[in-house]
Computed example of a mutant assay.
Amino acid sequence: MYIKKILLLIVLVGLIIGGVFAYNVYDAIFAPNTKFNNPEAHVYIKSDASIADVSKMLEPLLNNTQSFMKVAERKGYVSNIKGGKYVITKGMNNNDIVNSLRSNNIPVKVSFNNQETLASLAGRISAQIEPDSLTLLSLFNEDDFFKSNGFNDDTKIAMFLPNSYEFFWNTSAEKFRERMLKEYNRFWNDERKSKAKAQGLTPNEVVALSSIVHKETAKIDERPRVAGLYLNRLKKGMKLQADPTVIFALKKHSGNFDLVIKRVLYKDLELDSPYNTYKYRGVPPGPITMPDISAINAVLNPEKHDYIYMVANVENFGYHKFAKSGAQHNRNKAQYIRWINSQNINR
């Protein structure tokens, strides 16, 4: 009888120990382990992150980091960390958290537009994916890659078509550049190349002219008319005489692209730069900014008209007054000069 009691006691103790162990295992693996109040939290893990880095990153989000670490070790995540953007939802247990971090790298939206230089583009992109701006800019300045794909220092920026794209956050600088080339080649299909040829332009020249159209008017509905005007000038052998090209030339000459110039002065027109379309005929050697797709489409599908002059419309701000003759243009220009002088805009 005494032996039976001892055996029974041993069994009971074993059951209790087993129960406690099972509970701890269950609690470590399957019990909720988040402490944030939002529906979900986003975690950005670098490509070279260690388990210590991941643990430190998760510490503000988890109730018990140690239990997470135990499950991470048991499931082999410690030696298989992958960079990327991951989502942890409220109420997740350690098992689900590890599974998410191991296999649920989600894409991010990368968008950019209106960049004037590759340096500013690198800064914009580095704020959205893992590579830093210096790494990106170094790749953007590799001449061999661009030269082999039909670009030079002046036209490089034309390869980057402004839009929104899906990337994994841990995309490398090299992969980003390769993707942009693919998007450029996809955009310039046979139909668009044929339209460019019909205007007497190469794709890179279309982008360069589009950048002027983009700078001249923010009104998308006016861009085909502005594009038609500049194409008329090119066909007549006239200089484009576009103020935005002079502003870009001044910035490039000074090395300061943060320079604010609200008014182009007569002395500015004398700057000897291939971008100064008051001094040199034809399309500038490269884009003066990254044009919107709407501006590119405007050059490829211009409005048909006989206008060769335009000036800002002070009666309908944002738009322009167009003219077919110098006399008509001078009347429009006089009205604009009176207005700008009344605003005391000297530079």
Rank of each mutant, 00 (worst) to 15 (best):
T245K: 08
Y336V: 02
N332F: 10
P107L: 08
Q128K: 05
G200K: 03
Y336D: 01
V98H: 09
S294A: 15
N80R: 03
N64S: 13
K215Q: 15
H42M: 09
N99K: 11
N341D: 15
R186A: 15
S172Y: 12
N185R: 09
Y26N: 13
T89Y: 11
I51A: 06
Y275I: 05
N256T: 07
F145Q: 00
F257G: 09
K4F: 09
N24Q: 14
R233C: 10
I308T: 11
F146K: 04
S342A: 14
N232Q: 09
N64L: 01
R102M: 12
P284Q: 06
T277D: 13
F30R: 05
N141V: 02
R338P: 02
K193I: 10
D48G: 09
L181P: 00
S325F: 08
T117M: 09
W339P: 00
V226E: 08
D48I: 00
I17F: 14
P107A: 10
V25S: 11
R179Y: 14
Y275L: 04
F167N: 01
K333W: 07
D221I: 04
R102I: 00
Y77G: 00
Q328Y: 01
A295N: 09
A218L: 07
N94Y: 09
N297S: 14
D132I: 05
V43A: 07
R281P: 01
T277H: 08
N80Q: 13
E116L: 08
I340T: 08
L161C: 03
T65N: 13
N113R: 15
I340Q: 11
P274H: 04
K267G: 01
N93I: 03
A298M: 02
R347D: 11
E216A: 07
Q128T: 05
F257R: 02
A28H: 04
A323T: 05
E178V: 12
F30M: 12
N185V: 02
L229E: 07
D154T: 01
S254V: 02
L9G: 15
A196P: 13
P224I: 02
I247Q: 03
N332E: 07
N332Y: 13
A52T: 11
R263M: 12
T155H: 03
N105A: 14
V283C: 05
D27W: 10
K75T: 04
P285Y: 00
S148R: 10
S210D: 08
I81A: 04
K236V: 07
L139D: 12
T171G: 11
F21Y: 13
S103F: 03
